[in-house]
Design a protein around this nucleic acid. Sequence first.
DNA 1: TTGTACGCGTTATCAT
DNA 2: ATGATAACGCGTACAA
Lengths: 354, 354
Amino acid sequence: MDEAPTSEQEANDETGRRRAPTIVDVANAAGVAIGTVSRFINGQPVRASNREQIEAAINRLGYQRNALAAAMKRDVTNVIGFMLPSLSEFHGAVLQYVSRKMRAQGRAVLSFFHDVDSRSVAEGLEFFAAQRVDCLVIDGLESEAARIRSVVERQIPVVLYDNDIPGVVVDRVYSNNRDASRRATSHLLDIGHERIGIVTGHTRDYTARERLAGYIDALKERDIQIDEDLIVSGQWSEQGGHQAMRQILALDHPPTAVFSCNYNMTVGSLALFREIGLRLPDDLSLISFDDVPLFRLHETGITAIAQPTELIADSIVGLLLTRLDNRTSHAPYSTLLLDCDIILRGSTRRPRIS
Amino acid sequence: MDEAPTSEQEANDETGRRRAPTIVDVANAAGVAIGTVSRFINGQPVRASNREQIEAAINRLGYQRNALAAAMKRDVTNVIGFMLPSLSEFHGAVLQYVSRKMRAQGRAVLSFFHDVDSRSVAEGLEFFAAQRVDCLVIDGLESEAARIRSVVERQIPVVLYDNDIPGVVVDRVYSNNRDASRRATSHLLDIGHERIGIVTGHTRDYTARERLAGYIDALKERDIQIDEDLIVSGQWSEQGGHQAMRQILALDHPPTAVFSCNYNMTVGSLALFREIGLRLPDDLSLISFDDVPLFRLHETGITAIAQPTELIADSIVGLLLTRLDNRTSHAPYSTLLLDCDIILRGSTRRPRIS
DNA sequence: TTGTACGCGTTATCAT
DNA sequence: ATGATAACGCGTACAA
């Protein structure tokens, strides 16, 4: 069964590294034209006898398609760029879902972690441009609107998620941060709380402003005066949340309940509670944005707002595929607002002294 | 300052999509040769006057380098493939670190989530081959040794991490699972426990076997008989951990301490404890592999083994860069075993009845 | 240092 | 259905 090495043997370059076989090699080995091999590879009909020859040659040579060459020719890479700040529970879930769903479509996801600064976002966009990604998913900085706009001008479909970038004409997928926050705050009001604090994120971020707006909505619905002392920024971070919560608890007239606007800040608050011996929900009611296993397994359980990560991913993929399969269409852009679930657990209870 | 549209204007194809400017366009606009532009882009010296012309032309045309064409020419994509099962806290951290460090080197990471089955691993390797990734990072299945070997034969550097695949000649980076598990178990013995249970992972996985081996090492060091009843698999999963722990607690002569071999299974156990009202550490001591915020903030705190994720990423990157910068060298392959920290918290205490 | 021309592997076009 | 051939954008000898 030994095949005598002929002209079709693998060539070695000067470094001793084997040159990968190409469709030309396959065509020669199979005794057919290059075009026939190309068409076989791309699933177009080929005469049965030729197909056998080609399949045999591919196996014998160990041929593997070069996606780069195909992409260059077709002007389509089947790669989508995904820019995000870090792999939190939320972003990780969305990235993974999007990645899996795209794979099922024969597409791949190239991810880029930006450092939440202008330079690294620019670097990421430049990188994606060089890689000729077909489209982009971005959780970006508002300050980068101009850069995103120049991407859009190049006819590259873009979907924004999580954080908004005003002034760019693209598709958007968000959790309904404002409504979820309103409902969460209303829950606290429903069970009898009247002074409610909030630990917010960076006000530069859309999500932070929306969550704060929802909190204010709920208070206004009941004609409750907004007390600025009860609104403290924790800068999205664990340490910031720790400090913000400390500041809120140190008020002359502290609240009986607090809404913490993300997971990290809640972790900071919980650490503080341990330090000072504050007990949930006896001493304070707490509700947090983002649901994680920690909250379910916490001794009392933390009431939390769960973002619909899989639905977000589905929506992102759906919007992108529509644009990609229909490049010429200028269908109107849409902004999807997806509802969150509020998971009631033990950290929210009616206040002791009402 | 208006530039009259000349031959250098952007061409539109039939779909109305602009063709991206190339170095040829830049060369024409700048009045220099193609080669000069290419050399400028790649940071080689160019006459000052030419450089100005080229920079101006690049800005005017909005030229962006085509990494695909360059990759095809150079046979180097500067993309590394990263194959992993899912985005757990551990894998997410490693992926993010590797990604950032590679970016600093001008390289990118293309990730692929396999479904822990043979078909999807094969699909991933095929995909990476088509994308011509320069090298591969894999947390793989042992069953896929043959496939990995054929990648190695193509001279593509591979680094294995987390889970071993015996019989392939590549670099490896692991936490010292066995020693960490031995030390964790020894800690329980030190504080007076004599009957210690273990909830293990899938025995098909290297990490599961190593962690079990460390547990056995510790018992043997003290001449304690291994009791098979105390060894139960939780299949790595939350539900499996729940069941395994239930089974262990239902023994006629249950242990006073349990070592849970990963995060998910520990979560399952904690859920069970809540259901049945078992209290840590009064009723049972618990130690877990993988340290996460949950364990720090748990009411009693969970003693845990922390894998050195950043060091793992550093090691992976270091090994890959060595191979990539030195393709011809056949330096011996290394297996790095990195020590874990054991973080003592409230879930481990000496047994009540000793 | 600069300009020219060829090749990388693939797809698409056009005749056959 | 197939075969021949021209691109795609870039890097790099080679000659100037």
